[in-house]
Computed example of a mutant assay.
Amino acid sequence: MFYRPKDGHGLPHNPFNAIVTPRPIGWISTRSPEGQDNLAPYSFFNGIAYTPPQVMFASTSAKADRQLGKDSLDNIRQTGEFCVNIVAYEQRDAMNATSGLYEREVDEFELAGIERAPCTDIACARVAASPAALECRLVQIVDLLGEANHMVIGEVVAVHIDDTVMSDGLFDVLKYQPLTRLGYRDYSRVTEVFSLKRPGE
């Protein structure tokens, strides 16, 4: 099969999301200037630099009641802060419950019964039970091609790690099994790890 995206793919569902997999999920928590907490998952998410540590996520849809993209994006634009909560397999249902297009007044922490904890360096809540959380300050919002596509880049200024997922000084993903996004309605989890040495190491 071959197709050009501008011409359409002719399939029942777009295969692009299924090709670029697995994708880590950034469970992004923000707070509006008025103090309203928001929590939403984004699967166009990744780490992009070590020093200083930086992450990105992309918002690819819009809401009629927000000036820019979705609630997360609008809050970040106004406050310059957000937190990335890492999603464990056991949190899959709670994460999914926060993925809806709710009115801006809806607090997804309350809606999904998620315990929140305060961040330390930014004025934002985080998911208390997440294996790790990255407090971020906004570096840049990049407008991408397409009407509602925006990439948020943040500098990680503080890191929370649940002690129960540490093994011999290492962050052990097998202790919480990261949830990953595939295509369509599909997800996966990391249950096996192997190591490779780079040439010359």
Rank of each mutant, 00 (worst) to 15 (best):
K6S: 14
K6L: 08
D7Y: 11
D7G: 08
D7I: 01
D7Q: 11
G8Y: 14
G8T: 12
G8I: 08
G8H: 05
H9M: 12
H9C: 08
H9L: 10
H9I: 08
G10T: 04
G10K: 11
G10R: 05
G10P: 05
L11I: 12
L11H: 08
L11K: 14
L11Q: 09
L11G: 11
P12D: 13
P12S: 14
P12A: 07
H13W: 14
H13G: 03
H13Q: 13
H13T: 12
H13C: 12
N14H: 15
N14K: 07
N14P: 00
N14F: 07
N14Q: 07
P15G: 09
F16W: 12
N17I: 10
N17C: 11
N17F: 12
N17Y: 15
N17K: 14
A18N: 15
A18D: 14
A18G: 15
A18Q: 12
A18K: 10
I19D: 06
I19Y: 06
I19A: 15
I19L: 15
I19H: 09
V20P: 06
T21L: 09
T21Y: 03
P22G: 05
P22Y: 10
R23F: 12
R23P: 00
R23W: 08
R23H: 05
P24D: 14
P24G: 05
P24Y: 08
P24Q: 06
P24F: 08
I25H: 02
I25T: 02
G26S: 11
G26Y: 02
W27E: 04
W27Q: 04
W27N: 04
I28W: 00
I28Q: 02
S29G: 09
S29L: 06
S29P: 07
S29W: 05
T30G: 09
T30Y: 10
R31N: 01
R31H: 03
R31V: 09
S32T: 15
S32M: 09
S32I: 04
S32E: 09
P33D: 13
E34I: 00
E34D: 14
E34L: 11
G35H: 03
Q36E: 15
Q36R: 14
Q36L: 13
D37Q: 07
D37T: 09
D37N: 15
N38S: 10
N38E: 06
L39Q: 01
L39T: 00
L39M: 11
L39H: 08
A40L: 11
P41F: 03
P41S: 00
P41K: 05
Y42G: 04
S43N: 04
S43Y: 07
S43L: 01
S43W: 01
S43E: 02
F44K: 01
F44D: 05
F45P: 00
F45A: 02
F45Y: 14
F45N: 03
F45M: 06
N46M: 08
N46W: 02
N46H: 08
N46L: 10
N46I: 02
N46C: 09
